[in-house]
Amino acid sequence: MSTRTIATLVAMALLAVLPPIFFYTGNAFWLDLATRLTILAIAAVSLNLILGYGGLVSFGHAAYVGLGAYAVGIPAYHWLYGGLESLGLATTSGLVQIPLAMVVCALFALVTGAICLRTKGVYFIMITMAFAQMVYYASVSIEEYGGDDGLVIDTRSELPGLNLDNPIQLFGLAYLSLVVAMLIVRMITRSRFGMVLRGAKGNAERVQMMGLNPYAYRLTAYVISGAMAGYAGALLGNFTTFISPEMMDWTRSGELMFMVILGGASTTGGPVLGAAAFIILEEVLSHFTIYWHLPFGLLLIAVVLFTRGGLMGFFRGRK
């Protein structure tokens, strides 16, 4: 077993053990932190599929998280205040909301990805961001769902056998989801599909000369990644019970990118370590000073300038 795998397993074990301890010792605050961290880690894992393994620098991933959250909030809103019954979307059932979040995000990824993936380099970075901004402004201007002020989710998703109002159960769901997301990404990236994706990152022209069209593989990965981020968004909506356009601001997308890079792109555990480091650091620094963005920003610059391979770079991988 490589030290990298051990580091990942240790981190996942800590994340499994500590939150229940927080819960049963009455440290609700730390449990909350762990839940938020876990949910954002899912989003980071999904981003890692395209950014790390696919080399596609998507600067709009927060839009998927936001769309996923709205896919919980909007049906819950209509369930309470009426409307959309005919579509079956006035509901608090998680079995409707969560698939809805994933389908909406997959479709959004399919349509926008089809356009974005025609571009390269900085054009790609900026057009993914532009599409996210479109979603952001759309949510700002739709008054019915709160516009700028956001939308309170009065009722959490109802799932059979689970009560998401119970913080430890919500954490449990998030944790299991994270494990599954990590395993899925690991499986995909090692499969024949993943070989093409990774190959196209390294040398797209060569892959095309082998008779494989990188565009189709990238678009598929883009859609999978979007659906996964939508799932994370659905969980996040359940966690915060409040959604606002601010969740989709471009700076949020930047934060997700940073989590992936900080932890170590194209590694299974990297995005999780990155999300953990990011959230904990943010918490600790903001505890000391309201000017915490200053050291945080400096740290970000230092990480980019002086470390290669993120936190995972400290551990030896296979080979």
Partner: peptide, 10 residues
Amino acid sequence: VLATFGLILV
């Protein structure tokens, strides 16, 4: 992108 993102915060 990441470094200048940090610079914005600073």
